[in-house]
Nucleic acid binder design. Sequence first.
RNA 1: GUCCCGUUCGUUCAGUGGUUAGGACUCAGGAUUUUCAUUCCUGCAACAGGGGUUCGAGUCCCCUACGGGAUACCA
Length: 472
Amino acid sequence: MNVVTRFAPSPTGYVHVGSQRTALYNYIFARQQKGKFILRIEDTDQNRYVEGAVENLLSSLEQLGIEFDAGPGKEDGKGPYFQSERNEIYSREVKKLMDDGKAYRCFCSEKRLDTLRKEQMEEQIPTGYDGKCRSIKREVSDERAKTEKFVIRLKTPREGICEFEDIVRGEVKIAWFQIDDQVLVKSDGFPTYHLANVVDDHYMEVTHVIRGEEWLPSVPKHLFLYECFGWDAPQMAHLPLLLNPDRSKLSKRQGDVAVEDYLKKGYTPEALNNFLALMGWNPGGKSEIYTMDELIKAFDINKITKAGAVFDVQKLDWMNGQYIKNMEVERYLNEARKWLGDLEVNEDKLDTALMAVKTSLTTFKEIPSKIAVFTGDPVEPDLEGTEMLEFESTKEVFEAYVEKITALDELKSDDFKNIMKEIQTEMGVKGKYLWMPIRVGLTGAVHGPELGYIVEYLGKEENIKRINHWIN
RNA sequence: GUCCCGUUCGUUCAGUGGUUAGGACUCAGGAUUUUCAUUCCUGCAACAGGGGUUCGAGUCCCCUACGGGAUACCA
């Protein structure tokens, strides 16, 4: 079988991390199976149109390295890949359904539907359309359609049980009488998700539908549609949801949910993908760090977890730190430079500063604050810092230090280390009694990156100036 | 209300009838280091509850509880 998967988001303006996880699983599975991965824009709801949303979506997917084989701007003869441009197809298909008596026009007002639902709630029976317009004769229906507003509904079975197999959930059973006569075409003439998704998946030859768990209850409707059309249904895999720390569905209120938010906060696409891929599945080895290729190799669609997963930023932080620490130097420097903001830096020595903080970063956004020790003026020592300046030996250490670097033409990290060794052997001062006064004298702070980096970045003159400040 | 799905350390993921229930993150302690960070080592910590089936159940079945989802002319 030639596997075809699809990611079918509605363009709401940003990519939710949950959607990204869905996209990832579709992508990974398709690549693993040497199949095709397609992107389809589900924009049948005209009320939800958002300016620039599609561009945004495409850009997010690109940044995350999710490449589709067919989709917007990448036609393969099975498009168009915008549902809003496929209305002719849906009209044609739904007409077949009506001719076969599988679907019917419904002229009920929204008001009647509302009161109906309320009554059903009170009577404690399943809510849903009561079938009032089910038996209107076709000729009458055709006539009324000329003047009245209507929707088209699917005539779902009223008895029996719908049983189906889900790759993640196993066997699922739902009684048909629970299933509503779903609206297939809205009164504005656009199809609902249920119709469009089935028609498109069929014509786009999708073999595996991998999507969020929220779709599980509508599977019977979809299956029935396939049956009515006489088509084979694809296999289904309904993914567990991503959750807030309080285990409700991951929402904006409790933190960032958009992929672009995380990118803006300095997370790398690799870390984000790696992290998301492991929400709901895991190859079981000792490591947690996987490249995309490794994920594709190791992925097992049959081993996806059933339970929802809390989005744990702490772990993402750790993972992102790992990716930065292990990042190739050239790429790191390149990336890090984008995060300087309006910080004033010494261009020649910027790389030194950036390398010095590489292992201490959680996200790129921390760069300005982390390298401030290089670029800014020294801070006023706090209590602990002051103590470090008041050792008995401090003044002599300072004097020896200044004397030794004054004799140099240029002050490099290696020179600095040699000088420190010399002072240690000559004066017998070592450990924190030697290093901390220099650190505090130079930066004012008791913590910071390796001193060698700082010394080299500041340069000979600045070193002398700052230490002399404390001698006097 | 009705229906569907779920429930292993705080979090995440392993564990598909016999295990001292494992890894990762977090947290705590230690080692290395001029500090912080990194790195390394050690430790804390879980099978929701109750019934079955079985010689034996985290693993299979049922019930309860709790959580989530669906119930739209949104996807």
